[in-house]
Amino acid sequence: MDSLFPRPRTEIAPGAVHVPGWLDAGGRRELVAACREWAGGPVPLRRTRLPRGGVMSVQTVCLGWHWRPYRYSRTADDVNGRRVAPFPVWLGDLGRRAVADACGPAVAEGYAPDAALVNFYDEHATMGMHQDKDERGDDPVVSLSIGATCVFRFGNTQTRGRPYTDVELASGDLFVFGGPARFAYHGVPRVRPGTADPSSGLERGRLNLTLRVTGLAG
């Protein structure tokens, strides 16, 4: 369908860019295979417990730095105490290419992500509106989607409510947000049923990889 009706590159807000179909089929399969390996540990895929006791419906594995609400650490003290898997050099290269294609080479110059959150959504998983603000800088966030299509809600920097824009992120889509959009609230209210991408090697559900620059040392 996309070959007949290509989806255009779109600036959703200043600094927030959606590039449909950025990852080709081979790239999607390679990332799915890597995610399966990362999910096995040393810190395995898990559902994050929130400060008020709730548990996230998505399952997450981290690379480079372990994330839990409001902090990063090298070891997963809330899971098994082990050091997370290292952040691969090739994934950083992919992130720089993503920023260059979405925002231009000037923005990509010097972009050096050192952490990734790999989130798996089953058909019932959602993500509430939130800001990515546990990092110490304002470098762009790179988001890569593989598998089922989701509704990605991209909002404003002041409130979880309106105004916001709903964007459909399909398998292979790239979304980058930085600049004035870096601290915008965003979330995933639903995954579209019947939109899986078996050609990627993922028979069901959705994988989302977000690459970040933590600004941390050690």
Rank of each mutant, 00 (worst) to 15 (best):
V107H: 08
V61L: 02
Y111G: 00
Y70E: 09
P86I: 10
M56N: 06
C103D: 04
A106I: 10
W67A: 03
L63T: 03
E109A: 11
L117C: 11
D93A: 15
R96A: 13
G92P: 05
R96M: 09
L117K: 13
R74S: 10
F87L: 01
A115V: 07
A98E: 03
F87R: 07
D77C: 15
E109I: 11
F87T: 00
V99R: 02
M56R: 02
V84W: 04
W67V: 05
G110L: 13
R96D: 04
A106H: 12
A85P: 05
P105L: 11
V84Y: 02
G95C: 10
V61F: 14
N80L: 08
C103S: 08
L63C: 01
E109H: 11
S73Y: 00
A76F: 05
L117A: 11
L91Y: 03
G81A: 09
D78V: 06
D78Q: 08
R71P: 05
A112W: 10
A98K: 07
R83V: 15
F87E: 04
S57E: 04
P88G: 07
A98Q: 02
Y111W: 11
W65S: 00
V89W: 10
N80T: 06
A108G: 01
C103Q: 08
R96I: 08
L91K: 01
G54I: 15
P88A: 10
T60L: 09
C62Y: 15
V107P: 01
G92H: 12
A102H: 02
W90Q: 09
G92D: 04
C62W: 15
C103T: 02
V89N: 09
D77N: 12
V79I: 14
R83S: 14
A108V: 11
Y70S: 13
C62Q: 13
V84K: 04
R83W: 15
D101E: 05
P88S: 06
Y70G: 12
T60M: 12
L91M: 03
Y111M: 08
V84P: 01
L63F: 06
A76E: 02
Y70D: 12
G81S: 11
W67N: 00
V89T: 12
P113Y: 09
Y111S: 01
A116V: 07
Y72Q: 08
N80P: 01
W90T: 06
G104K: 06
P69S: 12
M56P: 04
V89D: 05
P88M: 13
V107Q: 10
P69R: 14
F87H: 07
R83F: 15
Y72I: 09
A85I: 14
D93Y: 15
A100G: 07
G64R: 08
V55D: 02
A115I: 00
L94I: 04
M56C: 09
E109R: 06
Q59R: 15
L63K: 02
P88I: 10
V99C: 01
E109M: 08
P86C: 13
Y70C: 10
S73F: 00
G54F: 15
P86T: 10
W67Q: 06
V61T: 12
P69E: 00
C103M: 14
T75Y: 09
A100K: 10
G81I: 11
D114Y: 07
P105Q: 13
A98D: 05
R82T: 04
V99D: 01
V58F: 09
S73A: 14
F87Q: 00
E109F: 14
